[in-house]
Nucleic acid binder design. Structure first.
Lengths: 221, 221
DNA sequence: CCTTCGTGTGTACATTCGTACCCATCATGG
DNA sequence: CCATGATGGGTACGAATGTACACACGAAGG
């Protein structure tokens, strides 16, 4: 059972069901053999615990590469090397997959945020931690940045995804509140957002020195 | 002729073509009558100069509402009340439509930017103009904000759209350079981006006073 | 040992999409 | 007044997608 997705549920059967692979049987496929393999060649066909988590990770990669638009069950399944049917088993639908993927993304990013800021003892160290977040690899990994953009666009349009961004932003603000007054935290948050975005899109990204100057100016009392 | 789209080109004919509306003829539609109308009821069937521009405008609205993902020829055509075939006539394909739409969006936004900043005489006035841009209606119209997000996501993934964002950002920077040193202009640009984004996504958007404080801190020498 | 049920897999189907035509119609310019 | 080409319009077709099943397996419990 996954997600309360029940299998033989409400008694409605749709079609009489044909015996086996009777009439169409596309023929191509050759589904066995090489693919889906452990180090050994032959078997390794089943029993994949944590497959759902693996699918979520894979989905984030697909989202980053192709956008929410280009994220299809088939593409994610192929990238994770699982059969298409596995998607409908583990997720209630496309929205469920997207929701799970973006929730994971927001959670990890917020964790990174928390970790960087919780290590700072002084206000100056906190400022430098912010500089590190903006210029570091965690927030700027192309996959993370691209997927975040997709989440923003999605959340802006579909309220059901706003809860993810809301929770994310709340966690970011809280992490900043530990070191800065509320207003400054808000401004810093916006600066981080804009700077990260610009660094991702611009051909010649802002120098780290400029980032540091900007942070210093914002946090300067 | 539009865009070198030639009509009877490469000699391959696909199917014999059936006489008129023979077999499928979905039945619904009722394509004449009310729709597509000027103020008068009956005719008004053709001659629509500037249709291409109208389609671009409509496409921006569709992009804002449904995202690039949900932007289809059929949806744009329906929204603009033109037949589907008109899309392939005026645009070489989906990418051409998107490119035209986002180019128009970037141009208009940059115009707004220029206009606001060119009206400022002093550094303080320029700062207040920036505050006005962030909190004003032009950049924050939901359609503009949403479409911009879509453009960012698209440009981040497809280099052919980067020229649009690059030109846009260059114009923004230039407008700021008229009043601020290059480094400050860069920081301001990032701040504008992040603040606008946060204001669009957040449930309780940053107060205008906070925006003003942030701008003042950044431009503070 | 055998039953049973959660997990995994393969495939069909309705729907929607981009695009490519072919035909109709009007504005021009001779 | 007519020929002509640009413009507008309708529709068919292959491809891709989300989803729903029907079947296959294998570990847990008797």
């Amino acid at each position: 059972m996954a997600h309360g997705l029940q299998v033989g549920d409400d008694g409605r059967n749709r079609t009489p069901v044909l015996p086996a692979g009777s009439d169409d049987a596309t023929g191509d496929s050759a589904p066995r053999a090489g693919s889906r393999s452990g180090p050994d060649g032959a078997r390794s066909r089943r029993h994949d615990p944590r497959r759902r988590e693996r699918l979520i990770d894979t989905a984030l990669g697909v989202i980053a590469e192709h956008g929410v638009a280009g994220t299809t069950h088939r593409r994610v399944a192929a990238a994770a090397d699982v059969p298409l049917g596995s998607m409908t088993y583990h997720f209630d639908g496309m929205d469920d997959l997207l929701h799970a993927a973006f929730t994971a993304l927001a959670g990890r990013t917020a964790d990174t945020f928390d970790a960087a800021l919780s290590g700072a003892a002084t206000r100056d160290e906190a400022g430098e931690a912010v500089v590190g977040l903006i210029t570091g690899t965690a927030l700027n990994a192309p996959d993370t940045m691209l997927a975040s953009l997709e989440l923003y666009a999605l959340a802006a349009r579909r309220p059901q995804f706003r809860t993810i961004t809301d929770a994310w932003m709340a966690r970011s603000r809280d992490a900043l509140h530990a070191h800065f007054d509320p207003e400054t935290a808000l401004m810093l948050d916006a600066l981080i957002e804009g700077t990260t975005l610009h660094r991702a899109l611009s051909l010649n990204p802002m120098k780290i020195g400029t980032v540091r100057t900007a942070v210093e100016r914002i946090v300067r009392p």
